[in-house]
Structures are given as structure tokens and as C-alpha cells.
């Protein structure tokens, strides 16, 4: 049975036992959830450590959203931060200026990000841009977003940033609770990822990523499914960004900047394994830990980041989760061979 989550392997075997399959699909998510739920036991006393692990969860959420767009359908969106920023600034402005209730403003901002992401996706697909070109167009969008945030100061606070009062006196303002809010979001995203993977959407995603022409010939509407992935993933990014804005209480031009979000998310996901369910989680956990270990040498952090990136990609070409999966499969098959 293919337990590796490369996504490349078309799991074509009909499952005999629905319950068995259900277990195989969702038990990893439950286990990860339980494991991550224990993290605050260690750090709950320290406010700064809780901020660190909470932002780790935020990046896991970003990673899953980006994974749906890039991992599932191969569209290199270099605007993770910008889409999260649309969610963050959108929700902040809606709730602060227009007195929209908190939950509603997060939802509207998420929908806004989803629409923008869907549009970008539609442009890229309808002009059949390949990976690099999609990357450049979305990168241009990212940089325009940053210029807009800086330039439109009367709306976004410009360089000074924006204070987000909505979210005070809610659970988002506590020391430990926000971690669980983000963990819940991450688990929700994981379940969505899995459900999509097992639905007709997932079949189409795999088909079009493995061989676009063959998928098109087989009757898969490539444009439609790519745009779906763009919409879903961007919506996830927007909502995560919006929740973060209300949790942090302050957002500025660097909060969702390309250099702070996109590069990290890409490296984390590539490390964990692009197109794998748990890749974003593993990447977020490892790089958050790494960041914390390097905290003493803040100036050297970027150098270490670079060295680690280079070393990891030389050693684990496809990411850790697929490599570990291969290793596990080999181990199992060799054991089976012996008996």
C-alpha cells in the first residue's frame, strides 16, 4: 500500500474496508493534533515563547494553504504573504473602520483573498504560464501589494502600521489560548486538505500535476481545477492572516512582507515535502525550533538559514516526509521479505 504522501502515486486500489481507509486517512491528523496540543505544557509560563510557538502554527497554516496551490496543482504563487496580508489588512480595516463584527470581518477578508488568488490563478492558467512565469507574475503582485501598503498610508497606516483593537478582550488576546486557535485552524486545514485529496478534486489535481496534457485529454478541465486550488488555498491564507492580525493587535508593512513570509513558507514546505499532508507541519516545527536555537546569534541567523537550506536540499531532494516515507516502506518491505 502506498503510505507515502508524495501525491505522485495515484492510489488507484479500491479500498475494501471503508473504516480502515478512514483510519489511515485521518489518524495522522489526530496524532499530530494531540502532539501539538501538548506544546503549551512546556512553554505556557513564558509569554515570549508562546508568541514563538503560536507564530510557528501560523506558518504551518500558511504552509498548508500554499501547499494546496503549489503542491497540488504546481502553481508557484510567490504571493503567500500578500494574500495573507489582504486577509489581515482587510479584516483590520473592516472591523476598525466599518465596525464589522470580528468573525464576519475575518470571513469577508478571507473571501477577498480567495477572489484575488482565484483571479491570479485564472490569469496564469488561461495564458498557460509555466512555473517560473506564474512565479514572476505573482511576485510582481506581491511587490505591488507592498508598495500599496506603504503608499496608501491613510488606509493602511503606511510605515507606522495599523493598530488592531478588535480582538482585544477575546480569546485571541490571551497568552496560551491563541495557540489553540491557530492549532484548530491548522487541523481544520489538514482535514480539508485530506478531504480534497480523496474527492474528485484531488483526483483531478493529481492527474493534472502528473501530466497536464494527458489529464486534459482525459476530460479533466485543467483551468477550472487550477482556479479551484487557487481559490481554496488563497482563502486559507487570507483567513490565517486575518486571525493573526487580531491576535497580534498590530500589523505593519513588514508583517506580511515577501521576505518575511514567502521565502520562509517556501523553504519550510520544500523541507517538509511539497505535496505531502504533513510536510508543512514538519517544516514549521523544524524551522521554528531552528529560529529559537539561533536566537542568541540573531545576526548569524540568515547565514545559518542559508547553510541549512543548501545542505537539506542537497541531502533530501524531495523533502523530509516523502524521504521518511520511502525509508519506512523500504524497511517494511525488507522485513516482509525476510519472513
Amino acid at each position: 500500500m502506498t503510505t507515502t504522501e508524495t501525491g505522485r502515486s495515484l492510489d488507484s486500489r479500491p479500498s475494501a474496508h471503508g473504516a480502515d481507509r478512514w483510519t489511515r486517512d485521518f489518524v495522522p491528523i489526530v496524532l499530530v493534533g494531540l502532539g501539538l496540543a501538548l506544546v503549551p505544557l512546556q512553554f505556557q509560563a513564558s509569554g515570549s515563547m508562546m508568541t514563538v510557538v503560536t507564530s510557528g502554527m501560523l506558518f504551518a497554516a500558511y504552509g498548508i494553504g500554499f501547499n494546496i496551490i503549489f503542491g497540488s496543482t504546481g502553481q508557484l504563487f510567490l504571493c503567500t504573504g500578500a494574500l495573507a496580508g489582504i486577509g489581515g489588512f482587510g479584516s483590520a480595516i473592516l472591523s476598525e473602520r466599518l465596525d464589522v463584527p470580528l468573525i464576519l470581518s475575518i470571513m469577508i477578508a478571507g473571501a477577498l483573498a480567495a477572489i484575488v488568488g482565484g483571479l491570479l490563478s485564472w490569469i496564469a492558467v488561461s495564458r498557460s504560464l509555466d512555473t517560473i512565469f506564474t512565479g514572476i507574475v505573482t511576485l510582481a503582485f506581491s511587490l505591488s501589494y507592498e508598495s500599496f501598503i506603504l503608499g496608501k498610508g491613510d488606509l493602511t497606516g503606511g510605515e507606522n502600521g495599523l493598530r488592531v483593537e478588535q480582538g482585544r478582550d477575546t480569546i485571541l488576546d490571551r497568552q496560551v489560548a491563541p495557540y489553540y486557535v491557530f492549532l484548530a485552524l491548522v487541523l481544520l486545514y489538514l482535514v480539508m486538505y485530506r478531504v480534497i485529496q480523496r474527492s474528485h478534486l484531488g483526483w483531478a489535481f493529481r492527474a493534472l500535476r502528473d501530466d497536464e496534457v494527458a489529464a486534459e485529454l482525459a476530460g479533466v478541465d485543467v483551468t477550472r481545477y487550477r482556479v479551484y486550488a487557487g481559490i481554496i488555498g488563497s482563502g486559507m491564507l487570507g483567513i490565517a492572516g486575518a486571525v493573526f492580525a487580531h491576535n497580534r493587535g498590530f500589523i505593519g508593512p513588514t508583517t506580511y512582507a515577501f521576505g518575511n513570509v514567502d521565502v520562509r513558507v517556501l523553504v519550510m514546505l520544500a523541507f517538509g515535502g511539497i505535496g505531502s499532508l504533513l510536510g508543512p507541519i514538519l517544516g514549521a516545527v523544524v524551522f521554528t525550533t531552528l529560529d529559537e536555537l539561533l536566537d542568541g546569534q540573531a545576526q548569524l541567523r540568515e547565514v545559518f538559514y542559508g547553510v541549512v537550506t543548501v545542505a537539506l536540499f542537497l541531502a533530501f531532494r524531495r523533502g523530509m516526509i516523502p524521504s521518511l516515507g520511502d525509508w519506512w516502506n523500504r524497511l517494511r518491505s525488507s522485513r516482509r521479505g525476510r519472513t
Binding site: V263, L266, V267, Q299, L300, R301, E302, V303, F304, Y305, G306, V307, V308, T309, V310, F313, L314
Partner: peptide
């Protein structure tokens, strides 16, 4: 890989 090299030089 080149992104990593960029980090190293920049850092």
C-alpha cells in the same frame, strides 16, 4: 539552492 546561497551571502 541559489536562494540558500543568497541567504548566506546576504547574511
Amino acid at each position: 539552492l541559489m536562494l540558500g546561497v543568497g541567504f548566506i551571502i546576504d547574511g
